[in-house]
Design a binder for these strands. Structure first.
Length: 108
DNA sequence: GACTTGACCGTCT
DNA sequence: TAGACGGCCAAGT
């Protein structure tokens, strides 16, 4: 599986995010061993549209801010999806982000 | 074929 | 303390 591309790895990790949990681009990038390539993770999410199994709405920046909400179908879609999972989102920011934060390095 | 952009993060000044 | 910049990889133009 290590022969898979960076994108595939990102998708795999994103798919591993449990229900009602969120993670950050940097956490994924770091887990992939490419810390600092957080931007790449964002690009990978760009192609997540072709993979509905990739919960891009569960991936936010390190501050718990929905930076990528603009890329979603609706401006509120990302927030609504998170709220639908029990995640409280206020002003594009996840509440209790520390508690809901899911670290792939720890979990995986 | 080369340059610019892109949903970020960490560090330096 | 706050602001600015560089770095990583890949795709699009």
């Amino acid at each position: 599986m290590a022969s898979e591309g960076f994108f595939e790895k990102v998708y795999q990790v994103a798919k591993q995010i449990p229900y009602g949990r969120v993670t950050s681009y940097g956490a994924i990038a770091r887990y992939l061993g490419s810390a600092g390539s957080a931007r790449m993770v964002g690009w990978a999410m760009n192609g997540s549209g072709k993979d509905p199994d990739v919960p891009a709405h569960r991936v936010v920046n390190k501050r718990g801010l929905l930076t990528g909400k603009h890329h979603f179908k609706g401006t509120n879609l990302m927030q609504q999806l998170l709220e639908s999972e029990g995640v409280e989102v206020v002003d594009n920011q996840i509440q209790n982000f520390e508690k809901l934060f899911w670290d792939p390095m720890k979990e995986l």
